[in-house]
Design a protein around this nucleic acid. Sequence first.
DNA 1: ATGGCTGTCTCGGACAGA
Length: 262
Amino acid sequence: MPFTLATWNINSVRLREGLVARLLTEEQPDVLCLQETKSPVEKLPVEAFEALGYTHRVARGQKGYNGVMILSKLPLEEAGAEDYAGLGHARHVAAKLENGVTIHNFYVPAGGDVPDRAVNEKFGQKLDYLTDMRDWAHAARPEKSILVGDLNIAPREDDVWSHKQLLKVVSHTPIEVEHLAQTQEAGAWVDVTRQDIPEGQLYSWWSYRARDWDAADKGRRLDHIWATPDISNAAHSSRILRPVRGWDQPSDHAPVFATFDL
DNA sequence: ATGGCTGTCTCGGACAGA
């Protein structure tokens, strides 16, 4: 049975409960992975999602920051939650579908302003988080797995509006790109979005600060869908729903979709 | 002009996002 998966940094699920419901109604993904829910688990809005058929979920949360949730129309069982780099943050949760596919939902630390761990602790935490993800993938040798989320790195030159102007900007620095590549290699993860859309500029995030984000189009591809090689060939129909960035009181991220024939 | 804004927690403004 084919299933459609989406990942979206919602930037407060309580504030944007209505936008989530709209996406679920209009696009009907089987599984939706959210990041930056910014809510303790017990305060997550779930009733509206249940009414739309999304009766299964796993979540981790904390007050004010971070937070991840997987909403699903398909039954799923919890498959763990890691606290990489020992930050005490709710940045990962995993779930296993009845078809045996495990879904990992990540919110990688943003990393602060200065791309130098000697003067910016947050940048060091971001690199350490990616290193722990790499070591986990290397040890676990994941199979039949999908890794999604806001990885907060735009790895390719055509994943940003200006490669040259962003080389020293956190999210596109060579050291971050190298750390992400090592994480990807350790799990043999296939970048599903780029498998489907190999050429051209592709963004999933546009800053709130631009006067006209659509016209300026200074975006970055920070949100990703990866799959292990045993199921990557089943993936197709990848897409980024740019119009969602233009909805009323939007998140600064657009949702990323893929369908798997499994 | 890569911060010009936005959200949380809490009721003014620090902190975080990226």
